[in-house]
Every structure is written in structure tokens, then in C-alpha cells.
């Protein structure tokens, strides 16, 4: 399976407070959280995002709080994957654990502009920018993490 969609580009240090502001954390319902995804950095995002679209971030994407509501809001609003120069570590873990695909690739993140069409392949780790005709490769996940992703999230392995 490959992900293909329009890029929504953000800068460095996109924090979990702008991904999903704490005032909405009185629920953990993905659909409700999705309505407010990225609200404090791009108020139009939740209304404009289409299924399959790709969020592109700079350095330290998802920094700040440990709220799993952040990757959940992103996943629930239809975003297929996130490509960033680097990820904050709790966001990185949370994304793996809940099955939101993420790709760490500095060059792809820096080249992409909002509106570009990107294609990302989680198996090969190849990211393509179809608008600009560029191709990037990312390091594959270590085996232990691939096992979590392939089994469908961390909780799927709890009973093993």
C-alpha cells in the first residue's frame, strides 16, 4: 500500500498544542478531535483536508505534550501519513503505537510545498514528490518497530 495525497506544509516545532489544543482534550473521540485538528496554526485545515492528504513538517514535529490525541486527531481527519525533517520522541512513539504512518526525511520535507502531490511507500521507505519529479529514500524502521506496525499497533501484541 502506498499513500498519495496533497501536501499541507508546516514549519519547525509544530507542537501538540497547535495540533490539538488542550481545550478539546475533554474528549478522546477521534471524530470530534478531527474537527479541531491544527486549529491554532491553520484554522482552515480541518475543513480543507481531504482523505489521503499528507502533512509535511519541519524539525521536531509533534513536540510538547504526550497527548495521543495529537496523532489521533491527524489520523481521524483523513491524513494518510506525516513526512517531517524530524519528530519529537513521544509523538514518534504514539504514531507507531496507534498506526499513523510517519516518515523522517529532511530533504523531502524541505523541498515540498503546500499543494504538491506526494507519494510515500512504507515498505520501501521511498517518498516521491510527483509535482516536482523528485524521489527520496528514508531509512527503514528497525525490526522491533516494524513488528509493532505490521501487527497493527502495540496493543495487538499485548496478549502474545
Amino acid at each position: 500500500m502506498k499513500f498519495e495525497g496533497k501536501a499541507h506544509k508546516f514549519g519547525d516545532n509544530v507542537d501538540t498544542d497547535v495540533i490539538i489544543p488542550a481545550r478539546y482534550l475533554n474528549t478522546s473521540d477521534g471524530k470530534e478531535l478531527a474537527l479541531h485538528c491544527m486549529e491554532d496554526i491553520d484554522p482552515k485545515f480541518a475543513a480543507e483536508v481531504k482523505a489521503g492528504d499528507i502533512i509535511v513538517g519541519g524539525e521536531n514535529f509533534g513536540c510538547g505534550s504526550s497527548r495521543e490525541h495529537a496523532p489521533l486527531a491527524i489520523k481521524s481527519c483523513g491524513v494518510s501519513c506525516v513526512v517531517a525533517a524530524s519528530f519529537a520522541r513521544i509523538f514518534y512513539r504514539n504514531s507507531i503505537n496507534i498506526g499513523l504512518p510517519i516518515f523522517e526525511c529532511r530533504q523531502a520535507a524541505s523541498d515540498a510545498k503546500s499543494g504538491d502531490v506526494l507519494r510515500a511507500d512504507p515498505t520501501s521507505g521511498i517518498i516521491e514528490n510527483l509535482t516536482r519529479g523528485k524521489k527520496y529514500s528514508t531509512a527503514p524502521f528497525p525490526k522491533e518497530i516494524r513488528d509493532i506496525i505490521e501487527s497493527g499497533g502495540l496493543m495487538k501484541s499485548v496478549k502474545k
Binding site: 510538547g64 505534550s65 504526550s66 497527548r67 495521543e68 513521544i90 512513539r93 504514539n94 503505537n97 496507534i98 499497533g153 502495540l154 496493543m155 499485548v158
Partner: peptide, 30 residues
């Protein structure tokens, strides 16, 4: 701890770090 500021307890000589809720759920069980 499912809170990013769980790193506080390092002050006492502990290894302590924040995680998300699914990590917490897994740890509650295992």
C-alpha cells in the same frame, strides 16, 4: 507516565520518561 513531564523524577536519580496512552495501556497490562 502518560504525561510528557514524567521526566521530573530524574531529580531523585530515577530513569523516568513520558509516553502516550497506548504505551500506558500496554504497561498497565504487562
Amino acid at each position: 507516565g502518560a504525561d510528557s513531564h514524567t521526566c521530573t523524577y530524574g531529580a531523585l536519580g530515577a530513569f523516568s520518561t513520558g509516553v502516550g496512552s497506548t504505551d500506558m495501556a500496554y504497561a498497565l497490562s504487562t
